[in-house]
Design a protein around this nucleic acid. Structure first.
Length: 231
DNA sequence: GCGACAG
DNA sequence: ATCTTGTCGC
């Protein structure tokens, strides 16, 4: 599906991708099925706008639990196969994330992804997409909504939660992680129940708006991008 | 038909 | 996502 060099993906290309998402979405497990958690990982992508090379820089960071101290880290840079299109983020970023994941040791028990899990039009946000392909428990942690809205105005206090509703369905949870900060949108990625996902995100907070795994991965991805610039 | 739209 | 330093407010 090399649609990027030719420009914007064609309508039939998107139709094929939608079908592929449907297949993967059917494999998503929304119930808990995780091992004892000893290592938690955060993953994120960084890129340069207007980069003619269209490079995608991925970073995965493994932290200890409950200490949340860095244990291992891996990064990878790949050329994007397609531009960013809302609803198709996984196809753009997952390849680089898997490349970094393959060289990661030790492997974590749970992965927090920067982006939505099942809170997606077809139930396959990047966190669910990655979780299924890697066959690992994952949670989606997005900074803004893709679809849906909180059931009611979210309270100001940190820890405040509100169901994320879309078309009469609950897709996830809107969570206030820090006072005076915009909320996070948490949803099941793979093999983690909604309530469990919210609990883990809350337990990984350390004074910042973002949970440590995702926050660290964001820093690592930026470092990987800047490392590439200076080469 | 018109907006909305993760990173 | 990224361009970018200081700055206003809690």
């Amino acid at each position: 599906m090399r649609c990027y060099p030719a420009g914007v993906p064609s309508t039939p290309d998107l139709a094929r991708l939608r079908a592929e998402q449907a297949d993967l979405a059917a494999r998503v497990e929304r119930a808990d099925r995780l091992p004892p958690i000893r290592l938690i990982c955060g993953v994120d992508i960084s890129s340069t706008r207007f980069d003619p090379e269209r490079l995608v820089h991925a970073a995965v960071v493994v932290l200890s639990w409950p200490g949340l101290e860095p244990v291992a880290e891996s990064a990878a840079t790949l050329r994007a196969t397609m531009p960013y299109i809302p609803g198709f983020l996984g196809f753009r970023e997952v390849p680089a994330l898997i490349a970094a994941w393959d060289r990661l040791h030790p492997k974590p028990d749970l992965v927090l992804v920067d982006g939505h899990g099942v809170a997606h039009p077809r139930g396959l946000g990047i966190a669910a997409h990655l979780g299924v392909l890697l066959d690992v428990p994952s949670i989606g942690v997005a900074k803004s909504p893709l679809v849906g809205r909180p059931a009611a105005p979210l309270a100001e206090e940190p820890g405040a939660v509100e169901p994320l509703l879309w078309k009469g369905q609950r897709l996830g949870t809107v969570l206030r992680t820090k006072r005076r900060s915009n909320p996070l949108y948490v949803s099941t990625g793979h093999r983690v129940a909604e309530a469990t996902a919210v609990a883990w995100v809350g337990d990984c907070l350390r004074g910042y708006r973002l949970p440590e795994p995702t926050r660290r991965a964001h820093l690592a991805a930026n470092a990987e991008r800047r490392r590439h610039l200076s080469l």
